[in-house]
Design a protein around this nucleic acid. Structure first.
Lengths: 236, 236
DNA sequence: TCCCGTCAACTGGTCCGACCAGACTTGGCC
DNA sequence: GGCCAAGTCTGGTCGGACCAGTTGACGGGA
């Protein structure tokens, strides 16, 4: 809200869904709790019931509530039942949960980055390598804004994933992208000029060119690890 | 339930959303194509426009279409935009895409299994190890039905993930579970008595007990690799 | 007293038809 | 030919009606 686009032109349904989502993820509504009926919510928010229904459908799609015809709509135990789609919500909610999940994300990112870099060293075509090279070069530019570095870093990740040809992994990167976009402020500190080191990317590209899988993987793992260490230091 | 019932009591909106989703994922509707207007779809499917709207909202939540007020609703380049929620559909679609994604899944599963096993060897508590032991023992029973072996194998995976304490990974396993549940027939061949080898799990548990991270990881990676090899042989 | 079936009063699901609001299309004006 | 305005497409919101499962209170029978 406060940052990124003062949300001027959101749908009615979208606005209400966000409100309720926040209530759920932040714990004001606990798993098992019943939401007010659609008719009551419509009255409370002074909108039509159709809009409330849309908001409910959205919450259901996010895996945050279960709707039962005839029964009440209840908050689900989303950590055990929802899929990755609730992730952005979890991070946006901030707080303790958000931070621990953020660390989990970086841990997993390191694993995947390493894997992709190794694959890339084995089978990257010249055009892909050129794109990686270009991205690494731009990452090394002085006076790069944190937000730009973040965007380039994501592009680098995506390019690596594209090289592996693993479509499932590609879908996963989209989840990561959603998180980056929705809660960029959680990531920007690691891209500050005084802590971000573009050397990892440069070394990775060099290793990929040299077909050195191990070195490429190590470089990207080191990149993710540095973010993880920074996060741990900040929260400590 | 377990066998995925021929969709007996789905919503109108849900039914229509599934139909369209399938059309999109299977390529009958290509990225960039405009869907018919809500009013036209309502007429074609002989339902109210509200129901069509709900179906549209669902497709949008899945990342399959983009809705623009005033403009047409268009199919997105979903592989580049959708999240993991379309995965089950990709597999169910069968055909070339389904098989290649299945291979991707096994590849990724190997990576994650190996990672989790290594972590488990480093930090598993006795109770968790006992649960893994029990699961491995049951997997080794003679005359195990493929479906039972599949269920146990999934439980083993989940238990490993729980040991890592990575909540994000836990959410990912839920996605895997959804796939297993929705298209079990795609996985059962690898659990047939004559090809399934429970030795990988047994060796992994032994390695975890011995705190041998490398051996534990290798055992689980070998498990996933054997599935991948079988898949490649079948399609070849 | 206790159990069980009935039914009213919830809940969400679908429908209708109207109107608002943004975005394209078209045609006439310059 | 190029530009702008009106018309008519699109989705967005409304409200009010009715259908369809669930729930639980209430009353009658064992």
């Amino acid at each position: 809200m406060r940052t990124r686009a003062a949300a001027p032109k959101k749908n009615v349904a979208e606005r209400i869904a966000s409100t309720l989502r926040s209530a759920i993820v932040k714990g004001r509504l606990k798993p098992g709790d019943a939401l007010p009926s659609e008719r009551e919510l419509a009255e409370r928010y002074e909108v039509n019931r159709s809009s409330i229904r849309e908001a409910m459908k959205r919450l259901e799609a996010w895996g945050l509530v279960t709707i039962r015809h005839g029964g009440a709509t209840r908050v689900t135990e989303f950590l055990m039942n929802a899929g990755l789609s609730v992730l952005p919500e979890l991070l946006e909610a901030g707080g303790e949960l958000g931070t621990s999940v953020l660390a989990d994300l970086h841990e997993l990112r390191g694993l995947l980055l390493g894997f992709c870099a190794e694959r890339a060293a084995q089978r990257a075509d010249p055009a892909s390598v050129a794109r990686l090279d270009e991205l690494a070069r731009r990452l090394a530019e002085p006076r790069l804004k944190p937000a730009e570095a973040q965007a380039l870093d994501y592009d680098f990740f995506e390019q690596l994933v594209l090289i592996t040809g693993n479509q499932l992994l590609l879908l996963f990167t989209k989840v990561v992208r959603d998180i980056y976009f929705r809660a960029p402020e959680r990531f920007l500190p690691m891209y500050r000029g005084d802590v971000f080191d573009a050397g990892h990317h440069r070394r990775a590209v060099a290793a990929i060119k040299a077909r050195d899988a191990r070195a490429a993987g190590d470089a990207m793992r080191a990149h993710a690890d540095s973010a993880l260490r920074l996060l741990r230091k900040d929260t400590a």
